[in-house]
């Protein structure tokens, strides 16, 4: 009995897949694309007081969808599960300030970059911590888990500093304010817009150089798609070029930054 039931279910599912397979539906209306993002990485992607997704990534994503004529829907996913979520087909693309790195390229495909900003440290004003091996000795550095910044810290400074990994950048910022950690390492724009310029970030400042080593920080932030999803990747690449040339990118950029986030 059980066997028959299972077979019937499988058959029904197979039939459903045949009828509602991809492509067929897309031919008549705009193709539906699900976009995964984090929603806790201001000013790039965050959830505002009205529970709406906002930010540079989100607006770029909407512009790209418009340019590529996709019907897009956002899915919010915690950062450290964001690539597994893509692989598991919970969404089709990640637009969440994800840096294009060799490690990630083994698992997902990337479009070209849509912005590129350096990483920097933040210290408490007047704390006099210098970003040298001697200056960092024994310091506690907060970083977001599963980021290029965490990899960079673990590879370059693990023997010198104590690395504290947080689930979100917000939590790292909180611990910086409460004084549990001495330094933050993150994307410079995220730190300046999402922390230093807020009331919370008063009394903190940047320290040390811009970090852009390609080995860790890759080629800027791109859009991740599943391996082999060539159609979507090419369509998004075309859309990125289009919004760069038609001024849409600049309009969004100027709303958030005083410099061109696309980088050189």
């Amino acid at each position: 009995m059980r066997g028959i039931l299972t077979f019937a279910c499988a058959a029904a599912l197979g039939l459903a897949a045949l009828t509602f397979g991809p492509g067929e539906a897309g031919a008549q209306q705009m193709k539906k694309v699900k976009i995964g993002t984090e929603g806790a990485y201001a000013p790039f992607n965050f959830i505002d007081a009205n529970k709406q997704l906002q930010g540079f990534d989100v607006e770029i994503a909407k512009a790209l969808c418009a340019a590529a004529k996709y019907d897009c829907e956002f899915v919010v996913q915690d950062w450290d599960g964001i690539i597994p979520g893509l692989v598991a087909k919970k969404y089709d693309a990640i637009i969440a300030s994800m840096s294009i790195t060799e490690e990630r390229k083994k698992v997902v495909d990337f479009t070209e970059r849509y912005y590129k900003t350096p990483a920097r440290f933040v210290r408490k004003s007047g704390s006099k911590i210098e970003i040298t091996d001697a200056g960092l000795k024994g310091k506690k550095v907060g970083v977001q888990r599963a980021t290029i910044h965490e990899n960079f810290l673990n590879d370059k400074y693990a023997k010198i500093v104590e690395v504290r990994s947080y689930a979100t950048q917000d939590e790292a910022n909180l611990d910086m304010v409460s004084g549990r950690i001495d330094l933050l390492l993150a994307d410079s724009v995220v730190l300046s817009e999402g922390f230093l310029k807020t009331a919370q970030g008063k009394g903190f400042e940047f320290v040390g150089p811009d970090f852009v080593d390609q080995k860790w920080f890759g080629d800027g932030a791109g859009i991740a798609v599943r391996k082999g999803d060539k159609d979507l990747r090419e369509a998004l690449n075309k859309a990125i070029r289009q919004i760069r040339t038609d001024g849409t990118y600049k309009k969004i950029n100027d709303k958030y930054f005083t410099f061109d986030a696309y980088g050189k």
Partner: peptide, 22 residues
């Protein structure tokens, strides 16, 4: 691991972040 301690789960999450071998 959610409050930054590197217990078994914490270690696993860091390694998954680098290798994606969930």
């Amino acid at each position: 691991s959610i409050i930054t301690l590197m217990d078994l789960t914490g270690v696993a999450r860091v390694l998954i972040a680098r290798t994606f071998m969930v």
